[in-house]
Design a protein around this nucleic acid. Structure first.
Lengths: 357, 357
DNA sequence: CTGTTAGCGCTTTCAT
DNA sequence: ATGAAAGCGCTAACAG
């Protein structure tokens, strides 16, 4: 935050060409500021509009003068920032980008903007971002996951704005939740493999608890193994989220060395599963003949590779869309001075069977 | 923007618990607002700070009262929004996310925030986003590519803030540029394949001109083919950006059918190259024996697949970092009332030879 | 080191 | 349908 020479202080500002204001436009048109304001805000407010002819004249003058309304002043005056903040673990993951796109589409339909931040899978970074966002007074906040620092939880609870946690089903939600059980989804995959005849099923996931979805998936694996009475303990942990493809490759090699009897492996995500699949090809291990491989997330690579990956399919965009729509209702309630009772929206998931198992 | 019931008008706001202001904190501590303001802004401004003891007392009181400074009011008053806007074609592309991460790191070092928007590879969407961003008065704007609508160009030229175009080398830059020649990079790849002995080299790219980097790459391919005196015309166009892996697969199949003599194919990006590679495996065509495949971008999949993909390596994060640092200098100049002369920073690229060629 | 005054550009509210 | 006045929460500028 401060390891380079500070920028020039505001007081050093030279008097650049003064920016065009609403008053300038009003003067040029020969009306009051209020009339310009109304012409520009027509529709989104409850106020009486200007005559259509005048409105067009005002709009034309704005364009002529290169006037762009100052949202900073508008937000300040109206007490409405006009944006919703969303935090995702990383930008570079199509699951989360699709969620972000669903969110964007939903909130933009009501004239709100989505402001995106990424936490790098770190709750400390999340805390910092939550603070930075709250300073800008978002009308709502969408988080990925239900695991936060104590300070972050506190800020969120006191923020007075709607908060939605997505992608997980936290034990103690802040307010609203839109997601699914990562544990159940992974357990379903294990049951699916069992039904296909696999009995020596291993799991490859992260070594840290940074990624709470990864932790839940491992938990779901263990639960299913236990339920099915299969031999436990075949959990292979590598690195920390996001697990790259290369670590999936390393993991499957070491795993087969350690437990040669393993006939199937469930990976924490398609990326590691793909890495594992390619490593098997390099070593000449038939997939699924020698070992079956399953992933999670149905990323593009899962259906493009050969053989294609069996995986857990999640409606990522649906999570975003549902969150966005819930957020709009919550914001509407807040603007009317009420609080929307906490909701939990379950997003369905499915097992996509392909050639890798 | 308005196809759902409008949100409640601001006037409908019920008097929720009034938000804590700086005056409240000041009253509690027994000092003036200005003292609180100074304590909170210490370092980032040129003003005299408060005594350390008092400052700590003020900070503690802020924490006690759950006070979070109102950046909306601060921006409004100081004429500094404290953020830089960046537009990328899509979030779901590690090249652009790395650029975004480099940018974030660079601007955060000076206490600025990065606000991200994605254009979906559409200059109309870009225009809309530029307008939305300018309303919020960013201190600078970073764009991907040099192709914009006329209206967008106009807004940018009149915005009065530093603008940087990245990833391309536009013929008529708005102001600053940080990028490389996509045409040169692709031409280098063709020359590389020629040096390896390939003579019947095809190109797979998009059918539309939505993605200006894709267009430049195709141009670079054609130029190199011409320079080398190779037979021209083997350009295969599919869909529009972003070309998915599946279209790379379709393309290579059709291409080999149409031009069976082809011995190497250059793809517009690693994604289509990977799709092509997998399709070859499905059909039992040896890569590079029957046909060699090259990509662009050095995405994770390029080094994880088998055989690994020969590709063009670009320092994506470096583009972001260089842009961020240039932006800081430009903002500093703007705050001092001057304008930084337009700079063009070239980011080097390289050919990464792997097993696919 | 701290306080006072003024005002940023817009919207709210009330008046016509 | 339009206007006038007031003020949002903060910081710049100046004074002490």
């Amino acid at each position: 935050m401060a390891d380079r020479p500070p920028l020039a202080p505001a007081s050093a500002q030279a008097p650049l060409r003064r920016q065009v204001t609403m008053a300038d436009v009003a003067a040029k048109v020969g009306v009051s500021k209020m009339t310009v304001s109304r012409a520009l805000n027509r529709g989104s407010r409850n106020d009486r509009s200007t005559s259509e002819a005048l409105r067009l004249r005002i709009l034309a003058t704005c364009a002529d003068m290169g006037y762009v309304i100052d949202q900073t002043a508008r937000s300040f005056s109206s007490k409405r920032s006009g944006f919703v903040a969303a935090l995702v673990p990383t930008l570079n993951n199509s699951n989360f980008s699709e969620t972000a796109q669903g969110l964007t589409a939903a909130v933009e339909a009501s004239g709100l903007q989505l402001l995106l931040g990424y936490t790098d899978y770190r709750i400390e970074t999340e805390e910092r971002l939550i603070k930075a966002m709250l300073m800008r007074r978002p009308e709502g906040l969408v988080l990925t996951g239900g695991s936060h620092t104590a300070a972050a939880r506190n800020m969120l609870l006191n923020s007075g704005i709607p908060v939605i946690e997505t992608w997980d089903l936290p034990a103690e939600p802040i307010a609203h939740t839109v997601g699914f059980s990562n544990a159940d989804a992974t357990a379903a995959m294990v049951h699916h493999l069992f039904a296909k005849g696999y009995r020596r099923i291993a799991f490859v996931g992260g070594a840290s608890d940074r990624d709470s979805r990864g932790v839940d998936r491992r938990r779901g694996y263990s639960r299913a193994i236990h339920e099915l009475g299969l031999p436990e303990g075949r959990v292979f942990s590598v690195g920390q989220a996001p697990i790259p493809m290369s670590q999936g490759a390393e993991a499957v090699a070491l795993l087969v060395q350690q437990w040669p009897e393993v006939d199937a492996v469930v990976c924490v995500s398609d990326h590691s599963a793909f890495g594992a699949l390619m490593e098997c090809q390099r070593r000449g291990w038939a997939v699924p003949g020698r070992i079956a491989i399953a992933g999670f997330g149905d990323f593009e690579v899962a259906k493009a590779c050969h053989p294609r990956l069996t995986t857990v399919v999640v409606d990522c965009e649906g999570i975003g869309r549902a969150s966005g729509e819930l957020m709009l209702r919550a914001i509407d309630a807040a603007r009317l001075g009420t609080r929307l009772p906490a909701e939990t929206l379950l997003i369905p998931f499915g097992i996509q069977q392909r050639e890798s198992t």
